[in-house]
């Protein structure tokens, strides 16, 4: 009875549990609230995307998970343990920059951190080989890090964060500044981590990345979690089946297009300089253009509802509120 209860508790224990996390920073302009009672749970083995604009509080959250900053209020638990220096081995972090020693070889970089994490010599040899293989750098083991391309360095930086087999891996904008090939390689690696049961907290500005990789997504702004859920769950924020983005030749045509869209009951949105309509049911382009007969549309495109539309809607509503 006790054993089965323990097993149930173990399954139910989130890998990362953040409760009411609050942090203020003193600035010359006064106190700034970086995190405002943030709550977040990551289940074991899931890839969770934390999205938000710059200054939303993502890095502050990561700093607290790594025990680099102390919260003013609230708590962080990793695998049921309150964050402390003792939980550092449970976490692997790939920061935004490629934090590697340039004159050391790939294997030496990994070996150094393996020693810092207290791995035995045999274990180090095994893990260095394994991690180099994981990030496709097996043939560059003896190359100094400074001779690697940007994508390779990022992969080496990721390998360093995996060297001690952490239970929770934090990837802070892992593909920023990388070309598309390097991005695909990183995405493949994240999928591989997930297949091995590693929990991943991914922060990114690339919504496509979150769309492809994350089981659940949280949207954070000004230190508050605005929305959270799977993509299907977040989809309810956008009450449309399709998004039409149109371009008109003149302002008066734009006004006419908006009036026509309103007459069909379409939602009107401005995504930057783009004019967009929310369509309650899917249409083909011909049928859509027929609805705007007599209005000079220079361009029109129909898109399925994507994470970017959801993200923009949630942050728009928050800004409006």
């Amino acid at each position: 009875m006790t054993a089965s209860k323990t097993a149930i508790e173990r399954v139910a224990t989130p890998m990362l549990k953040i409760q009411n996390l609050t942090k203020r920073f003193d600035t010359p302009q006064g106190s700034r609230l970086a995190l405002d009672h943030l709550n977040l749970n990551l289940n074991p083995g899931e890839v969770y995307g934390l999205l938000g604009p710059n200054g939303a509080g993502k890095s502050t959250t990561i700093n607290m998970i790594c025990n680099l900053l102390q919260p003013d209020e609230g708590s962080v638990e990793i695998a049921g343990l309150p964050v402390s220096d003792a939980t550092k081995p449970l976490v692997g972090v790939t920061p935004q920059e490629n934090l590697v020693y340039p004159s050391l070889t790939c294997a030496e970089n990994l070996n150094f951190f393996a020693r810092i994490y207290g791995l035995s010599k045999q274990e180090r040899l095994r893990r260095v080989d394994r991690c180099l293989g994981l990030v496709n750098l097996g043939d560059r083991a003896t190359s100094p890090a400074e001779t690697l391309s940007g994508g390779m360095r990022r992969r080496l930086s990721m390998a360093i964060s995996l060297i001690h087999q952490p239970k929770l891996v934090i990837l802070d904008e892992p593909t920023t500044g990388l070309d598309i090939e390097a991005r695909y390689e990183i995405w493949e690696l994240i999928r591989l981590l997930q297949s091995e049961g590693v929990t991943v907290l991914l922060t990114t500005h690339l919504l496509e990345e979150a769309e492809r990789l994350c089981q659940r997504i949280g949207i954070i702004r000004q230190g508050q979690l605005l929305a959270e859920g799977s993509q299907a769950e977040l989809r309810r924020w956008v009450k449309a089946e399709q998004i039409a983005v149109v371009e008109t030749s003149q302002e008066n045509h734009k006004a006419a297009a908006i009036a026509r869209a309103q007459s069909f009951g379409y939602g009107i949105r401005h995504y930057g300089s783009d004019l967009a309509f929310w369509l309650p049911k899917t249409l083909d382009l011909r049928a859509f253009l027929d609805q705007f007969n007599g209005i000079d549309l220079v361009g029109a495109a129909l898109h399925p509802v994507r994470l970017e539309h959801i993200y923009l809607e949630i942050t728009r509503l928050d800004a409006g509120a």
């Binding site: 790594c66 680099l68 220096d85 550092k88 081995p89 976490v91 972090v93 920061p95 920059e97 934090l99 590697v100 020693y101 951190f113 810092i116 994490y117 207290g118 360093i160």
Partner: peptide, 10 residues
């Protein structure tokens, strides 16, 4: 920036 990485390690 390797100091950051060291700070995050034990």
């Amino acid at each position: 920036h390797t100091l950051k990485r060291l700070f995050m390690s034990p």
